[in-house]
Simulated scan of single mutants.
Amino acid sequence: MAEITTRIVQAIEVPRSLLSDFIAMPESDQVAVYFLFGQGEDGASQKLYVGQTGDLRKRLVKHNKEKDFWQRAVVLISRTNSLTQTHALFLEWLCIQQAKVAGRYLTENGNDGSKPHTPAPLEADCHEIFDTGRTLLATLGYPVFEPLASNKSQSLKTTELFYCNRAGVKAVGEYTEEGFVVLKGSVGKGAVGKAHIHRAYAKQRDALMQEGKVALENGVLVFKEDVLFGTPSGAAAAIVGSAANGWREWKNQQGVTLDELKRGNVSATTEE
């Protein structure tokens, strides 16, 4: 469980294997907004389903029978049992919109829905609840609403960018605490080498195309939004369409490799 002592919102993380234990808890008998998390078929992308309900026990049991992808749920409830169905409907809509803007997860919701009519005072409550829920989800390890790259909130002048330039490749990325982010507008090779079509990065490219995050245009792969990869090498391989050492492929404007800037500094510090 996660909560901020001065707020009424509480987040409860529920492993699917312990769903029956949660259903036996009094907290499961409330109006709630909930998030189901799991992996995509490629094993690399992450899936998310956002829902709301006035009968949490019944809804989670139904999802346990009918939805295969999820492994963990996070439930947002009120510690004072004061969430109404109107709150939940607006929060569900808002969470779906903001999750898609952040682009970290492939949302399993069929459509974006339409903004429900909500009285202004209630809508203000919902935005405060959303802000608390956003913090609690990130604290539990689910940064659903956080932007992938720091340039979302900072000037590009203050962001350390790295470049991968080859024939047919012109990509820009950022090395972050979570991995390597290839930025929107980057261009990679349009095809994967025949010897590499069964590799994980080839499958990930296909998944990204299905999700609309990248697209083939005029024979090249164009990133339509920022995409997070687990490693610099995974990002480079997806860009060049073959196995690649991202630590050496990604370089800053002065031509210094990511390896020299990041791993070299660690080695030097250790030796000292």
Rank of each mutant, 00 (worst) to 15 (best):
E3D: 08
R7W: 00
Q10V: 15
V14Q: 03
L19F: 10
Y34G: 02
L36Y: 03
L36I: 09
F37H: 14
F37D: 09
G40K: 01
E41R: 06
G43Y: 04
S45R: 00
S45E: 03
Y49R: 05
V50S: 01
G51I: 02
G51C: 00
G54E: 10
R59G: 04
R59T: 09
L60K: 07
K62S: 15
K62T: 15
N64H: 12
K65V: 11
W70S: 07
R72E: 09
R72H: 15
V74L: 04
S82V: 12
L83T: 01
Q85S: 10
Q85A: 09
Q85R: 13
A88W: 06
L89F: 03
L91K: 01
L91F: 05
Q98M: 04
V101F: 04
A102I: 05
G110Q: 08
N111M: 12
N111F: 06
P119A: 08
E123I: 04
A124Q: 13
E128R: 15
R134G: 06
T135Q: 13
L137E: 03
P147F: 02
L148I: 05
K152E: 05
Q154G: 04
S155I: 10
S155P: 11
K157W: 15
K157M: 11
T158H: 15
L161E: 08
A167H: 13
V169T: 00
K170C: 09
F180N: 04
V181A: 12
G188R: 01
A191P: 03
V192T: 12
G193C: 08
A195F: 12
I197S: 08
I197Q: 14
K203S: 04
A207I: 05
K213P: 01
V220T: 13
L221D: 01
F229Q: 01
T231L: 04
A238T: 13
I239R: 03
A243C: 08
N245K: 05
G255I: 05
L261F: 05
V266E: 08
T269I: 14
